[in-house]
């Protein structure tokens, strides 16, 4: 992995900095985590990427990192068989749903975080609280809320705990989370937490920006902000391509 030397360099710098601070503070208190890159640029060749986490931890305990995508409203529809064919019938809307969710930890989540804390802090895919847009939904909304998580999981956008944060190079830790090609754009909230005895000891947060880059961003913005001009260009481009092909092949 080409990012590995860069990671080592940055982790090294951070370690030196923190260790020099640490001589003054109590060494046991030291805990800080961050991301290698704070931006994912979706460009033409984009086929998913790994985001690297690194940090320093001197005291005891385990590391848990939560990635939360920007929140959005979703409509969940259920298919039913009517007259022999399957079609969408019931619909429940949910608000404030994270478009992306992933957890990385240094040990399996259940060994690190107590069930109560998991539920309170919404740590782990199964602890996300989905709020239906209409209060009237009642208990009927449960299968829809479950389906929302299930579909997101199957798209790779909700990831169950990946216990791949290594504490091998004490006091440094590092890990990574995979972002698939269909990752939604926006600002992601990343929380790096230290857990001991099932409870959170300390933590800090960072922001990860996911945005389209280069030509793709440009095309996307034109399609949405200057839709009429975009449509005309699409037509002109197709006509030109067709005409060029006509000229080329007439000679052959």
């Amino acid at each position: 992995m080409s990012a590995a030397p860069r990671i080592l360099l940055r982790v090294g710098c951070l370690a030196v900095l923190l260790l020099s601070l640490g001589t003054r503070a109590r060494a046991d208190d030291l805990f800080l985590g961050d991301l290698m890159d704070h931006r994912i640029a979706i460009t033409t060749g984009f086929a998913g990427t790994d985001v690297f986490i690194y940090g320093v931890k001197q005291g005891p305990g385990d590391v848990v990192v939560v990635f939360r995508g920007p929140r959005s409203a979703y409509a969940v529809r259920r298919k039913e068989r009517i007259a022999g064919i399957w079609l969408n019938t019931d619909r429940v809307d949910f608000q404030g749903v994270p478009t992306f969710y992933a957890v990385a930890s240094s040990k399996p989540l259940d060994e690190v975080v107590s069930p109560k804390v998991q539920a309170n802090l919404e740590i782990g895919v199964d602890h996300l609280k989905q709020a239906p847009a209409d209060e009237a939904g009642g208990s009927d909304v449960v299968p829809f809320a479950d389906a929302l998580v299930r579909v997101k999981k199957s798209m790779g956008l909700y990831q169950a705990d990946v216990a791949n944060i290594t504490l091998d190079n004490r006091p440094l830790f590092s890990g990574r989370v995979h972002f698939p090609a269909n990752v939604p754009t926006g600002n992601y909230e990343v929380t790096v937490m230290l857990f001991n005895g099932g409870e959170m000891v300390t933590g800090n947060s960072a922001v990860l920006q996911v945005s389209k880059g280069g030509a793709d961003a440009w095309i996307y913005e034109r399609a949405h902000d200057q839709a009429a001009a975009y449509g005309l260009c699409a037509i002109a481009g197709a006509l030109l391509l067709g005409w060029a092909a006509h000229l080329v092949f007439r000679k052959i």
């Binding site: 959005s72 409203a73 529809r77 259920r78 298919k79 022999g84 064919i85 399957w86 389906a147 997101k152």
Partner: peptide, 16 residues
């Protein structure tokens, strides 16, 4: 695809 029971009965879409 219309007749065979789909593996996932639910679908999601961004609202608005």
């Amino acid at each position: 695809e219309l007749i065979v029971t789909p593996a996932e009965l639910y679908s999601i879409a961004l609202v608005g």
